[in-house]
Nucleic acid binder design. Structure first.
Length: 413
DNA sequence: TCTGGGGTCCTAGGACCC
DNA sequence: TCTGGGGTCCTAGGACCC
């Protein structure tokens, strides 16, 4: 029997949240992002701003040129997180099978829930009513037998509408649509398909699976199936454990001073460490990411035998990796970041001494590993930098520079 | 007008082991 | 001497999502 899946998606979420708080913004060109004269991008644009060509992900400076009279809002992520929690709580009243797709969207499997929530389209209407009344937010819903079709349908329903695709009509519904309407089909695959003369989902679905797999790997085969509306993936229940945690930041202007860069790395290491400890996790792998002035980006990572979540161990690894990058490339840095992956559960809390010893082990091992990979000399500078940044008062100055005035975090809905 | 931040998943080559 | 074959882990990068 066909399943009944709803994809529920808040319209222009960040903008709608700002309009709910400040009704005078309704009906206007509103752009949520960071500083319009800085290096940020558009997080969300109102439909009125989209008329000028403004899109999510576009540099804010471009958006300002296209829509100089738009209202630019920096964004209030605590507000968005609160609204998102309430939104998800409403959805869980309709089925236990709610899979979040971020702050502003989720799949709900309402198969077999009819006695309680009515038909899928009645459930959609009820959800839309509640979100409107309780949160003052517009929301669109796609209804279909598979996740991929429900998601495409919710896009077609926008703004503030419902689109139901009856079981059996999926392929016909998708066939005329452009390639990019299919989730997971991005600019890269689109460009290669266009070269083959394929521009619609119907054409993609008609390609032989074997040749697609030869050209695109297993991605290709799945894309063709999805283009026909075939998607065996289920709506997953819970949120699931995070697989990685990271912090990164783009400088307002490029930075060359090693002390400054290391101070920022230190701050990010502490932030990632705090997040790991809060979740009761340790990281086996630490990664440093560096973006240069020309936007070229490199990453370096180490995997440890003794997983780490102390600020010092994470920073020791990060500093050593960073020095390994910098030993070969001294160009000014645009972005720097620290990541933790390969996460494992934190062990039971031992005595303070044992914990300290273990953290010291992770620290030494991180440095040893990188030394073996990249050479002794590199790590000695890493050590020196580590001592300098950890020890003195100088780093605090650098750190405040890096984190509060130079780097401006933003987010995307 | 240059191009954010936080994630997930996949690939391909090399190391290493049996 | 010219060379196996499979399995697993690690690393770096890339595509894609919101």
């Amino acid at each position: 029997m066909a399943r009944s899946i709803l994809h529920v998606d808040l319209d222009a979420f960040f903008v709608s949240a700002e309009q709910a708080r400040e009704p005078s913004l309704r009906g206007k060109a509103v752009i949520v992002g960071g500083n319009p004269d800085g290096r940020g991008v558009v997080a969300t644009a109102s439909y009125e701003a989209r008329v000028f060509g403004v899109r999510s992900g576009m540099p804010l400076r471009t958006a300002k040129r296209l829509a100089p009279d738009a209202t630019f809002v920096r964004g209030d992520f605590d507000l968005y997180a609160d609204l998102s929690r309430h939104f998800h709580a409403i959805l869980r009243d309709y089925s236990p099978l709610v899979e979040s797709g971020g702050l502003d969207e989720a799949y709900i499997d309402v198969t077999g829930c009819e006695a309680i929530v009515g038909t899928p389209s009645e459930a959609a209407a009820s959800i839309r009513r509640r979100v409107r009344v309780e949160l003052d937010l517009p929301v669109s819903v796609g209804i279909a037998a598979t996740k991929v079709v429900a998601k495409v349908a919710s896009d077609r329903a926008k703004p503030d509408g419902v689109c139901e695709v009856p079981a059996g009509t999926e392929a016909a519904f998708l066939a005329p649509l452009p390639l990019r309407d299919l989730p997971l089909l991005g600019p890269s695959m689109e460009a290669r398909l266009v070269q083959l003369g394929v521009t619609t989902l119907g054409q993609l679905a008609a390609l032989p699976a074997a040749s697609l797999e030869a050209t695109f790997g297993k991605h290709g085969r799945f894309a063709a199936l999805r283009a026909a509306g075939i998607d065996p993936s289920r709506v997953a229940g819970g949120p699931g454990e995070a697989k990685s945690m990271s912090r990164e930041g783009t400088f307002a202007s490029d930075v060359s001073e090693p002390a400054h860069l290391l101070a920022v790395l230190r701050g990010f290491s502490e932030s990632v460490g705090a997040q790991l400890r809060r979740h009761g996790r340790r990281a086996r792998t630490v990664t440093v990411k560096v973006r240069f002035e020309d936007f070229s980006t490199v990453s370096r990572s180490v995997t440890l035998d003794s997983p780490a979540n102390s600020d010092d161990a994470l920073f020791a690894a990060a500093a050593a990796l960073f020095e390994a990058v910098r030993a070969r490339d001294h160009r000014p840095v645009r972005l720097i970041g620290v990541g933790a992956s390969n996460l494992v559960p934190d062990a039971v809390q031992l005595s303070l001494d044992a914990t300290a010893a273990r953290s010291q082990d992770a620290l030494s091992e991180a440095v040893d590993r990188v030394r073996r990979k990249y050479g002794r000399k590199v790590i000695q500078t890493g050590r020196t930098a580590f001592d300098r940044v950890t020890g003195g008062a100088a780093w605090r100055h650098e750190r405040s520079l890096g984190l509060s005035s130079q780097i401006e975090p933003t987010a995307h809905d």
